[in-house]
Structure formats: C-alpha cells, structure tokens
C-alpha cells in the first residue's frame, strides 16, 4: 500500500462524488422546473444585433 495506491482510491472516490453531485443536481432541476422552461431556449432568439441585421455594438 503506497502513496500512489492511495491516490488511485482518492481519484475513484472524487470521481464518484462529482458524478453523483451532477446526477443529483440534474434530478433536482427536473423536479423543480418545468420541462417546457428548461427547453425554452431558441437558436437566434437573442438580440438581433449579433445576427447581422444591425451593425453590432457590445453584443448582448
């Protein structure tokens, strides 16, 4: 049992924690927000400036 072995286990553990964090968060989001809202983003629905209709100044 050396330092490197321990580091290996730490890496497994950290990966598991981070993955679990993301999964739990994703599930929480699904339970708190309506699907319609989460998927309401539309391509090209921001300021018309960025899409070449108006000369752009400062973006958003």
């Amino acid at each position: 049992m050396s330092l490197w072995n321990i580091l290996g286990y730490v890496a497994w553990g950290l990966s598991a924690i981070l993955l679990a964090w993301m999964l739990v968060d994703a599930l929480l989001v699904s339970s708190q927000y309506d699907e319609e809202y989460l998927m309401s983003s539309r391509e090209g629905r921001e300021s018309p400036a960025v899409h070449g209709v108006l000369p752009e100044e400062g973006g958003a």
Binding site: S31, Q32, Y33, D34, E36, Y37, L38, S40, S41, R42, R45, E46, G59, A60
Partner: peptide, 15 residues
C-alpha cells in the same frame, strides 16, 4: 408547483 415559462423570459446560454 414547478417553475414554468409563464411570465419569464426563455432560458438561454450565458454571454
């Protein structure tokens, strides 16, 4: 009980 689109701007990526 969920937060919905009504009265809110559609969601978008952050600029």
């Amino acid at each position: 009980s969920k937060i919905t689109t009504t009265g809110k701007k559609p969601i978008a990526l952050l600029k």
